[in-house]
Amino acid sequence: MSTRTVAFVGAAGGVGTTRLTVECGALLARAGQDVAIFEMAFATQGLSSYVDEPIDADVTALATGEAELEASLYEPYETPGRLSLCPARGPFERVARAQTAGAASRLEQQFAAASLSHDVVLLDTPPVCSNQALAAVNVADRIATVVPGDTRGRDALARLRERFADVGVSADVVVANRGDEEFTDADVTVPDSAETAPRDEPVCLAADGAFPAAVADIVDATLGVSVDIDATDDDGGGLFSRVTDTADGQ
């Protein structure tokens, strides 16, 4: 498939956007796809916790022109495909400079550069109230909104849809994280995961079960890539028995 860019946009802080972005990337990389993940949440810097090695160059250095793309990508897991993470881990002064309109324009160029060496580019994006978040939704081929799967989620989704309308974009997929079947606004509902320390290793690198199956549903809905997973099997066997690109009628 041609490279596709997906922005995962949290409808509020703390809804699990970073984790779901990483899990989708892990599933794709385990299936042999080369995936790059860029963190747009400069304030919370959650993606950096998935990288054990010292982070010298990060996405804020990339945005300010102080680092090159390859130096800003980290590959903490061994997978059949590349799983390249570009986290935010910069001092306050650089984080501030990385949020200008000019820096956002430079980031858009880096997303395009990453698409030349990766099959999929995923953008871990906070609610759209910053230049870098706006850059993410502007360049994305598809936008997935992550909301809590309860009453708060409906309210947050309504607010985010208004913000999307303000900037001329719309959500293609709504993901209810830690939700239930009563959340009818969602295209995909993700259950709680039994794994309580996902940063040690993303669940989707080595397990079947309801959680990886839901992540596979997100990948299918956003990218048209179908991965067969046994939703009832939690022992780690049988993962990725089939990968099919269903986008654009393929």
Score class of each variant (00 low, 15 high):
Ser2Tyr: 10
Arg4Ile: 11
Ala11Asn: 04
Ala12Gln: 04
Gly14Tyr: 07
Val15Trp: 01
Thr18Ser: 08
Arg19Glu: 07
Arg19Trp: 11
Leu20Cys: 02
Thr21Arg: 03
Val22Leu: 03
Ala31Thr: 02
Ala31Gln: 08
Gln33Ile: 02
Val35Pro: 00
Val35Gln: 01
Ile37Asp: 00
Phe38Met: 07
Glu39His: 05
Met40Phe: 10
Phe42Lys: 04
Thr44Pro: 14
Gly46Leu: 02
Asp52Ser: 15
Ile55Leu: 10
Ile55Asn: 09
Asp56Pro: 06
Val59Ile: 15
Val59Tyr: 01
Thr60Lys: 08
Ala63Pro: 10
Glu66Gly: 08
Ser72Arg: 12
Ser72Asp: 12
Leu73Gly: 01
Tyr74Trp: 14
Glu75Lys: 13
Glu78Thr: 11
Glu78Cys: 13
Thr79Cys: 06
Pro80Ser: 13
Pro80Glu: 15
Pro80Met: 10
Gly81Tyr: 02
Arg82Ser: 06
Ser84Ala: 09
Ser84Trp: 00
Cys86Gln: 05
Pro87Trp: 08
Ala88Thr: 15
Pro91Gly: 12
Glu93Asn: 14
Arg94Asn: 11
Val95Ile: 08
Arg97Cys: 08
Ala98Asp: 09
Ala103Tyr: 10
Ala103Cys: 09
Arg106Cys: 04
Glu108Leu: 08
Glu108Trp: 01
Gln109Cys: 08
Gln110Tyr: 06
Ala113Met: 15
Ala113Leu: 12
Ser115Ala: 06
Ser115His: 01
Leu116Ser: 01
Leu116Thr: 05
Ser117Phe: 14
Ser117Ala: 12
His118Gly: 01
His118Asn: 10
His118Trp: 05
Val120Glu: 00
Val120Met: 09
Leu123Arg: 02
Pro126Val: 04
Pro126His: 14
Ser130Asp: 14
Gln132Val: 12
Val139Gln: 04
Ala140Glu: 06
Asp141Val: 14
Ile143Asn: 02
Thr145Ala: 10
Thr145Arg: 05
Val146Cys: 06
Thr151Ile: 10
Asp155Arg: 15
Leu157His: 07
Ala158Pro: 07
Ala158Tyr: 10
Arg159Cys: 09
Leu160Lys: 04
Arg163Glu: 12
Arg163Ile: 06
Phe164His: 07
Val167Ala: 07
Val167Asn: 15
Ser170Tyr: 02
Asp172His: 05
Val173Asp: 09
Val173Ser: 04
Val174Trp: 00
Val175Lys: 00
Ala176Glu: 03
Arg178Thr: 06
Gly179Cys: 10
Asp180Ala: 08
Glu182Ser: 15
Phe183Asn: 09
Ala186Phe: 02
Ala186Asn: 02
Val188Asn: 01
Thr189Ile: 12
Thr189Ser: 06
Val190Leu: 11
Pro191Val: 12
Pro191Leu: 07
Ser193Ile: 03
Ser193Cys: 04
Ser193Thr: 04
Val203Arg: 07
Ala206Arg: 11
Ala207Asn: 06
Ala207Cys: 05
Asp208Asn: 14
Asp208Ala: 15
Asp208Trp: 00
Gly209Asp: 09
Ala210Thr: 11
Ala214Glu: 04
Val219Leu: 02
Val219Met: 04
Ala221Gln: 15
Thr222Cys: 06
Leu223Ile: 00
Leu223Tyr: 01
Leu223Asp: 00
Val227Leu: 14
Asp228Gln: 07
Ile229Ala: 00
Ile229Glu: 00
Ala231Thr: 08
Thr232Cys: 15
Asp233Ile: 07
Asp234Leu: 03
Gly236Pro: 03
Gly237Val: 09
Gly238Val: 04
Gly238Gln: 00
Leu239Cys: 10
Val243Met: 06
